[in-house]
Design a protein around this nucleic acid. Structure first.
Lengths: 223, 223
DNA sequence: CACTCCTTTCACGCGCCGTTAACACAATTC
DNA sequence: GAATTGTGTTAACGGCGCGTGAAAGGAGTG
């Protein structure tokens, strides 16, 4: 589950609905020591920091988030139009901002954008609830990290590259395993099974079987 | 002078003032062929793409910008609240967006943020508790100096330049050691190991192993 | 040359995970 | 409904990738 930090307490009411809608868990804190004590094992995926009430404390919190061990937490600032110039002096302290009062749909879109993409120009393949980051070799389903082995990842990546298309076991063996691979076709089955089980019961049907042909990711377009 | 691409023609009037204020040069285009023909020698630093008029053409242009050789161009979308959901399906096609009608100060702040962060000409690289001074060849962890040898430093610097990204041993050998280096891949392992030990038990996990792929600095965002 | 530090290589061992086989079950054909 | 073919499921073997320690080159210094 994706965890998001919210600062300060007062900002929670407006933000909570959007976070719930995204299926993210969240926690409000007022200072850095409180934040440090309540960090989940997976770390914060993002932080929403309202600047308006006390800009200095907001920036201090952002500075702390940036200096932690897991420096991968994206920071989104909430700021009124009047205080916008303040952000210009701390341009490295945040990844995105949203003007207050905000439209829920805008905040949702910004969070969505921020939590899926890491910054920079990286290659991410997406299909429905599934996201594959080719550079970091990481996979996500429903914003949850998937712990895949090498072969599982390679297979899933190959399938995701052409959603809806059916691949025979022989094609998969030669394309994913290597053109010179020599081995039984049932190997594919086992990997498909492990993928399905790791995708979870809810998303196991992302990979569908086409009897006596092969496997396919997602549904065919006209079904 | 930073050059910015603007699409389509109609969006120019609203955007021009802000770009002039930032001291950036800009050019309006209506399609990709026009954009391809007018790219300056330094390349586009950014692109402002208005979605509202013709979403499909806007996304097409963004796709083109992303697919070029110089993939360093940041893309900012201008979109009305009604069309906001459209963006969710193309989350990798842009770096930031701004709701229309927009406050000039907001667009200015977003462009500022987008364009400044792109040219990172800093002598100090920082990632979490780790900081590397490229000029003085010094490294610090938790504000304590790290005594690294030449190769250790070069390797750590290369990894830190792209946090989260996985590098194979072959890539590391050719990029850090030199394209004409001839030697065993296990050499990388040993250097990684010494780096980990010098980082200390607390921070040894800054460098993680991706089995049968390579190494990566930091656990990327989704873990 | 003697010494030290850095780099590279080799060998060993452990643990993961890819592969296979065997069986149960579902689907298709007659 | 039986026979046949295709797929799901499970468990166990075995290879190989990687951490680890040690020791052999190599370069610089006195």
């Amino acid at each position: 589950m994706t965890s998001v930090l919210v600062h300060p307490q007062g900002a929670a009411t407006a933000v909570a609905k959007v976070l719930d809608l995204l299926g993210a868990s969240w926690k409000t804190v007022d200072d850095t020591t409180e934040a440090a004590g309540s960090e989940p094992s997976g770390g914060w995926a993002g932080a929403i920091v309202a600047v308006d009430d006390d800009p200095e404390r907001a920036f201090e919190l952002a500075r702390w988030v940036r200096s932690r061990e897991q420096a991968t937490t994206s920071i989104l600032m909430l700021v009124s139009a009047e205080l916008l110039p303040e952000l210009g002096d701390h341009t490295t302290l945040f990844d995105d901002f949203c003007l207050t009062p905000f439209h829920p749909a805008e905040l949702e879109a910004r969070l969505d954008h921020l939590l899926i993409r890491s910054d920079g120009d990286d290659a991410i393949i997406t299909y429905g609830p599934l996201s594959l980051n080719v550079e970091t070799y990481q996979a996500m389903i429903d914003r949850r990290p998937l712990d895949l082995t090498y072969m599982e990842y390679e297979l899933l990546r190959y399938l995701t590259a052409s959603p809806g298309k059916v691949f025979s076991r022989e094609i998969l063996l030669s394309e994913v395993w290597g053109y010179d691979y020599y081995g039984g076709a049932r190997t594919v089955d086992v990997h498909i099974r492990r993928l399905r089980s790791k995708l979870g019961e809810e998303h196991a049907n992302l990979i569908s079987t086409v009897r006596s042909v092969g496997y396919r990711l997602g549904q065919a377009k006209w079904t």
